[in-house]
Each structure stands twice: as C-alpha cells, then as structure tokens.
C-alpha cells in the first residue's frame, strides 16, 4: 500500500511547507508530522517524505538518523520518555526509570512484548519545577506530561494508561 498523509495531516503539511523558504528547511517538522501520522520513521516513510518535499532520499536519511527523537524502529502504543537531566536526576528520575523498567519488564530503549510500551531515557523536557517527570507520546499523536512522580504514583498512572491504550492503534502496524 502506498503511503499517504490523511486529510488532516495533508492540510498541516501544506501549511508548514508554506512557512519555510525552501523544502529542506521544512524537513524537520515534516518528519515529526510523518512520525505522528505513521507511528515511526521507516524507509518507506523517508522515501515518502523525500518525494513530498522533492528532496533526495539521502537528505532525509541523514537528518532522520542524526536526531534522536525520530523513531527509526517501531515503538509501543505509549512511548514513555523519562527525564534524567539534572533536576529530575536529583529528585529521583533514575529511581523512576528503574521502577518503570521493573514494572514494564523492559530495559531502556526496548518495547514490551505486547507492543504497548516503549521506555526511553531523554534529556530535559523543561518541567524542572515538577521533577521528576516523564512524557508519554501516544500512537494517536497525543503528548502528555506526568509530573511530581513517585513509584506509587507511577503505578496508578500505568493502571490508567493501560485502559487508555487499549483503544489505540499499534505504531508497528500503522503503515
């Protein structure tokens, strides 16, 4: 099946391309859009973005692999990104990370066997006032912050998330 943006994403795409002097400059937001649309940046997605922006695929490849926030592998329905930069680290970010590893049964960078969760360690998400925290990116494109965490709070959050992600599509199958 040939890839194509949904109608909503198409509007968004045309708008963002119009805001840059050339298509190369629009590559970063275009890739973010494609990631939320197709779940992850596969070879087909890079090819599609290159075609849409009239760039050589190698230009897309070099940018997509340079930045760490493009998922070059399929992720889970909920991508949990735990901050471990200074403030969070001082306030127990690593404990939260370890707790999540234990509860989800995965290591940092891995996806759970049921395809529900991917766990990542990330740099500062600008929420130092409410450290420690993690950001969850859902496969429907929603992004949410979970703040002032403790091990207990993580457990209740995960219980809620489990219910929520039951209705979400699996990024590995989104395109």
């Amino acid at each position: 099946m040939a890839l194509a943006f949904s109608e909503k994403a198409e509007v968004h795409f045309k708008d963002l391309v119009s805001r840059y002097p050339n298509t190369l400059a629009a590559l970063l937001p275009a890739l973010h859009l494609a990631q939320s649309e197709f779940g992850w940046i596969s070879v087909e997605v890079m090819d599609y973005v290159a075609r849409r922006l009239e760039l050589h695929p190698t230009k897309v490849l070099t940018v997509a692999t340079f930045y760490s926030m493009y998922n070059m592998q399929p992720v889970g329905k909920c991508h949990v990104q735990v901050c471990t930069t200074l403030t969070c680290a001082l306030r127990g970010g690593y404990e939260i990370l370890e707790h999540l590893e234990e509860v989800l049964g995965v290591r940092v960078g891995e996806t759970s066997a049921d395809g529900n969760y991917t766990l990542s360690e990330v740099e500062c998400l600008a929420s130092c006032g409410t450290a420690p925290m993690f950001q969850a990116t859902f496969s429907d494109g929603e992004i949410e912050y979970f703040e002032n965490l403790s091990a207990e709070r993580v457990d209740t959050i995960l219980a809620d998330l489990n219910k929520r992600i039951a209705t979400l599509p699996n990024p590995a199958e989104m395109h």
């Binding site: 070879v43 890079m46 090819d47 050589h56 695929p57 190698t58 230009k59 490849l61 070099t62 692999t65 340079f66």
Partner: peptide, 17 residues
C-alpha cells in the same frame, strides 16, 4: 546523490539510502 552521513558523533558513517 547516493551517499550521505548517517547517525552522528562517533557512530557516524557513510551510507547509501
């Protein structure tokens, strides 16, 4: 335009698409 650099830092390499 076959070649480009992929990844960054000490993982960077030359690759084709």
């Amino acid at each position: 335009n076959e070649l480009t650099i992929v990844q960054r830092g000490d993982r960077a390499e030359i690759r084709a698409f």
